Amino acid sequence: MIRYSLKCADDHGFESWFQSSEAFDGLLKARKVSCPVCGSAQVEKVLMAPAVQPSRAAKPVADTARPLATPSSKIEEALLTLRRQVQENSEYVGMGFVNEARRIHNGEAPERAIYGEAKVEEARRLIEDGVPVAPLPFMPQRKVN
């Protein structure tokens, strides 16, 4: 796996993981890499510092959550506000989203706000089955790294 720092044509910066540099190149050429802020597929890599592992003798650093980016427009500010509200008021269930959404809909799990990840086909099936879901206009914070 390889992590790239990226930016879109509107200068929105973001990061994403790829299986390899060849996989990134193929996805970029197929216009499958897009900005999580504006959706632009005009994306390019930007200079980034390498990830260096500390020595075994090094003292562990306190685990601090990566702060959300500073908004540079009203749209980015609105998206960051939405992200904060979702994260503060919902439970992240990751790739278990489809199963948990169905369980909640069927009364097999407690009613609560959740968010997570689903493949497009799975989300479409949830909607067709009457499960109330909606796509979020951002990647979960755990996936942005």
Rank of each mutant, 00 (worst) to 15 (best):
E91N: 06
Y92P: 02
Q85Y: 08
E88V: 06
I75F: 14
P67V: 13
H105L: 02
I104A: 03
L126Y: 03
S73G: 07
A123Y: 09
S90L: 01
E122N: 10
D63W: 15
N99W: 06
V98N: 09
R84N: 04
R103M: 03
E76G: 05
G107C: 09
I104D: 00
Q87Y: 00
P110C: 08
I127Q: 12
N99L: 14
E122L: 08
G96T: 04
L79R: 15
V93I: 00
D63A: 15
P110W: 07
G130D: 11
K74A: 15
A118H: 09
L80D: 06
G130E: 13
E100T: 15
E108R: 13
E88Y: 07
V86F: 04
N106A: 15
A113N: 15
E91G: 02
A134Q: 09
R83E: 06
P137W: 04
A134F: 06
E108A: 10
V133Q: 05
P71V: 01
R124K: 13
V86K: 05
E111D: 13
G116W: 07
S73K: 04
V93W: 01
K74D: 11
S90R: 01
A78K: 09
L80W: 11
V131H: 08
P67I: 08
L80F: 13
G96K: 03
K119F: 10
L126T: 06
P135V: 08
P132T: 10
D129R: 11
E76S: 07
P135G: 13
V133N: 04
P135A: 15
T70M: 09
I114H: 00
L82Y: 14
A69C: 03
A109S: 14
V98Q: 14
A113D: 15
E117N: 14
L126R: 04
V86S: 06
P137Y: 01
E121A: 13
T81W: 03
R66S: 14
S90P: 03
H105Y: 14
E77P: 02
G130A: 12
E122H: 08
I75G: 01
R84G: 03
A113V: 06
T70R: 09
E117F: 05
L136R: 05
G116Q: 09
E108C: 02
E76W: 01
R124W: 05
V98C: 14
E117T: 14
V93N: 01
A78S: 15
G107F: 10
E108S: 07
I127D: 10
S73L: 01
M95D: 13
R124L: 08
F138C: 11
L136N: 05
E88T: 10
N89G: 12
E77I: 03
G96P: 02
E77A: 01
E108I: 00
V133I: 15
E117M: 11
I75T: 12
M95C: 08
K74T: 05
A65K: 10
D129T: 11
V98G: 11
K119I: 04
R102D: 03
F138V: 07
K74L: 11
E76K: 03
E77Y: 00
D63S: 15
L126D: 02
R66F: 12
A123V: 10
P67W: 06
I114M: 02
A101W: 02
V98M: 12
L79H: 11
V120G: 00
